[in-house]
C-alpha cells in the first residue's frame, strides 16, 4: 500500500507532489481502514448487488435528430478554442 496515494493520483490525473504524498496517503488509509469493516462482513451467498436506487427498466427514446446547440454556445465555456475546435496542449510528450 505504500505507493497507494501516488498510484491512485496518477490514475486519477491529479498532480501529487512528493512532499504531500505521505499526508494524503495517511488520510486515504484512515478512510480505507474504516470501510474495510465491510470485507469481514458475511452476507448471504446469493445476495445480488444493488447498484442503482431504482430498479425499473427500459427508459428509451425515439431515434430522432433534433437541432444541435449553436457552436459558439457550446464553445463559450472552453478555456481554449479557435471558434471551431476545442484546443488542448499537444498529446505527445516532449521527447
Amino acid at each position: 500500500m505504500s505507493n497507494l496515494a501516488q498510484n491512485v493520483a496518477k490514475l486519477a490525473r491529479i498532480d501529487l507532489p512528493d512532499d504531500k504524498a505521505e499526508a494524503v496517503q495517511e488520510d486515504l488509509e484512515k478512510v480505507l481502514k474504516y470501510v474495510q469493516q465491510l470485507e469481514a462482513l458475511e452476507l448471504p451467498e446469493d445476495i445480488e448487488p444493488f447498484f442503482g436506487a431504482i430498479e425499473s427498466v427500459n427508459a428509451i427514446r425515439t431515434d430522432e435528430a433534433q437541432p444541435s446547440y449553436p457552436r459558439e454556445e457550446i464553445l463559450s465555456n472552453a478555456p481554449d478554442s479557435d471558434g471551431q475546435f476545442y484546443k488542448v496542449p499537444s498529446v505527445f510528450e516532449q521527447s
Binding site: R13, P79, D80, P89, E93
Partner: peptide
C-alpha cells in the same frame, strides 16, 4: 479535465494539463 468548460492550469502537454488542472 480542463478541455471544455472548466478552468485550466498552464501546462506544456496534455498529461500535465490534466494533472495540474485537477490538482489546482
Amino acid at each position: 479535465d480542463g478541455v471544455r468548460y472548466t478552468n485550466r492550469a498552464a501546462a506544456e502537454n496534455l498529461e500535465e494539463m490534466y494533472s495540474k488542472t485537477r490538482a489546482e
